[in-house]
């Protein structure tokens, strides 16, 4: 395949080979769009405009089309995030079980609002749909780790 050689690719060899591996078992290059975004995000934490352009080039699609896909999905980050993302469930059972209090506690403890990153760049706080652990509500994920049966005291321990 022919890449546009004029655009210097900011993608690493590892990223490119991971993306090509996905493409190899798909019917066309574009079908790897979401996988490619996730691969690059796993190396860099988020998708910058430069990364987006490089991926679009590699997949032979327009930046606009790829951005339309990237911005559709809430777990593709088009802005920088902290070292770990806090996904705090804001769905119905967690709400019934006083999830709002947990949210207030996290905000005041880490001094952030929803969508913001802490000053030390450690955490970004984002809302998420039901984490499928409603029998242990309220629930959140910090990075890959699930924390449930949350209380304000537990929040303090987790973010000590």
């Amino acid at each position: 395949m022919k890449l546009n050689q004029n655009i210097p690719s900011p993608l690493s060899e590892a990223e490119i080979s991971d993306i090509e591996a996905e493409i190899s078992h798909l019917p066309d290059r574009k079908s790897a769009a979401i996988d490619a975004l996730k691969i690059v995000q796993s190396y860099r934490g988020w998708i910058s405009d430069a990364s987006l352009g490089a991926i679009a080039n590699l997949l032979q699609m327009s930046n606009e089309e790829l951005d339309g896909i990237a911005t559709f999905y809430n777990l593709i980050y088009r802005r920088p995030v902290g070292e770990k993302v806090i996904l705090l469930c804001d769905s119905v059972t967690c709400w019934i079980m006083d999830g709002d209090k947990i949210c207030q506690k996290i905000k005041s403890h880490l001094n952030v609002e929803q969508g913001e990153t802490t000053a030390d760049n450690k955490f970004t706080l984002l809302p998420v749909t039901c984490l499928g652990d409603c029998d242990h509500a309220p629930v959140m994920m910090v990075g890959d780790e699930l924390h449930h049966d949350l209380t304000t005291t537990r929040v303090e321990e987790i973010f000590r």
Partner: peptide, 11 residues
Amino acid sequence: DEMEPGTFKDR
């Protein structure tokens, strides 16, 4: 995909 709020069975 199991994202229906209040659902925790497939997991």
